[in-house]
Each structure stands twice: as C-alpha cells, then as structure tokens.
Nucleic acid binder design. Structure first.
Lengths: 138, 138
DNA sequence: GTCAATGCAAAAACTTTGCAACATT
DNA sequence: AATGTTGCAAAGTTTTTGCATTGAC
C-alpha cells in the first residue's frame, strides 16, 4: 500500500459522489500534485481487485468508482448522469436474490440493480413538458 | 430506413448474442462489404433512439446491443464478458424496485438489472484465482 | 540490492465527427 | 435542387502499457 494508493482510497471513501477515474485524479491531485493519471488507473484497478473499492462499469459510458463496498444500489439521473446511492432495507433483498437463481445456466455470484430516473435538480415534473430542459450537472 | 440500416437491424435481430458495435460491423460486412464502421455506429444510435433495438450501456466496459426490445434481463460472465438473456419473471423484480424507490429522492422511471457470474465455459471453480482467471473468450 | 510502484509519454481501444460524394425524392 | 445518409478518414475520449526512475523494505 503506497502513499499514492492510500490517498486514492481515502479520497474515494470520502467522496459521496461516484467519481470517474478522471475525477479521482483531480481529487487526488490536490494532495499529490505530481501523481499521474496512469497511476490512478492502475491503483483503482488494484483496489477494486482487492475489494477495497467498487468498480461501477455499468453506470453509463464512462466507468465510475465507489469507495463504499457494502452491498448497495444506485440510482442514476437520466438527465445529468449523476449517480447516487439508494438506501435499502435488508428485508426484501434476500427474497429477491432467491428469485434470481433459476433462469440461467451461469453460476451467479452477484447482481447489479440500477434505478433510473430524474434527480431533484433535474426537474422531475418536466418529464412530459419539455420546458427549461434539464442541464448537465455531472 | 436505408438498406444499410435495414441490414444492421436484421442482423441484430437474428443474432442470439449481444454483439458490440464492432461485432455488428463484422456481421453486416458479410452482406455489405463496403459499409463503414462509422455508419454502423450511427445507425445503432438511430435504431436505439427509435426503440427498434436496445443499447446495453451497463453491460461491462464496451457497449453492446440487443435486437430484442422486449423487457428482459441479462447475465454477464465476469471472466469472458459474454452476455446472455435471463429467463426471469419481471414481477418480483418490479416489486423489489418498487421497494427501493422509497430510498431515494429521485423520480424513478425504470430500472436495470444485470446478473453477474460465470458462464458454463468459464470454469466456475476458478473464482478464487482472482486475477489469473480465464481469458477473454468473447 | 531487490522488487514493486511511479511518472511520463506513447499507444491502444472505443466512439464520434467533418466532409465530399451519393442516393432518393 | 433539397434532404438525409454514406464511406472514409481524422479526431476525440477513455483506458492501458512500456520503460526508465524512484522508493520502500
């Protein structure tokens, strides 16, 4: 665990957003101005392989990372691309996971659920009437 | 609907796999040898905007496309990246997503579910060997 | 010293775009 | 002629990699 890797992990744990590699780079650069983007990529890879962070390959085009490795779900804004956590009660999870096993020959190790919708900043009521139009706040 | 677009749509409907843009390009090229990759990308974009095909942004790093627009779920092999359909009743999933909606301030409009695991070809017992797993057979 | 990790830069991988030519109307 | 699409190539974006150097043991 090098200093760079430590700082990357800390910043990611601290961030409540779900930053892209580039955003992690910017965060970390405030503390380690000479760090390189390649190092950030390499360490994000190592950290997620170790299970210390989570890789969110599926949240849109660009990969995102999450310092929270507890099992939790995400919601993504269709307008601005922002990603937030969903607070869930543990109760329905087990029953749900149970229902998943049957439909495939794969050996299932996990699942990913992403809710999609519109974040508070992106004017949910404008879904039908395209008024001011949501802007990209990502 | 140009000839190129028609062929792209046909090949995608015909394919049981969930091909990447590049793979669509290869498929289509067998019938239209002079088609360009740019045209494939443009038409995949148009077709998914029209709802004639489905864009699988969340299935791994590289974007995939699905000629089946019916609501169904996917399972992705963590080892080789292959994507298959999952036979699954939507009911428990929708109920579960419903339960999650309470945990966010977003206005939820939909959800995406992807199972992850290991396909029959990819030796499920190798799960422990994290990095040295099977190579990409995609 | 050894060995892994780093910074840097170049390359790779994937996707989008500018543009002139080409259809179709 | 007007419109929209194509093939091609170039450029854009995101991610990975080669390599000499650095730093922790």
């Amino acid at each position: 665990m090098t200093h760079q890797r430590q700082v990357i992990l800390e910043e990611l744990k601290k961030a409540r957003s779900h930053p892209t590699a580039d955003q992690v780079y910017e965060l970390v650069r405030r503390r380690l101005p000479r760090i390189s983007l390649g190092t950030v990529y390499r360490n994000l890879e190592v950290l997620s392989a170790q299970g210390l962070i989570q890789r969110l390959d599926w949240a849109g085009t660009q990969r995102r990372f999450d310092g929270d490795v507890e099992n939790h779900y995400h919601v993504r804004c269709l307008a601005c691309g922002r990603v937030d956590d969903v607070v869930l009660e543990a109760a329905p999870v087990a029953a749900f996971a149970e229902a998943l096993s049957g439909g495939t020959e794969y050996q299932i190790t996990g699942h990913r659920l992403e809710l999609t919708g519109f974040c508070p900043q992106c004017c949910p009521e404008e879904r039908s009437a395209q008024g001011a139009g949501p802007k990209n706040l990502d």
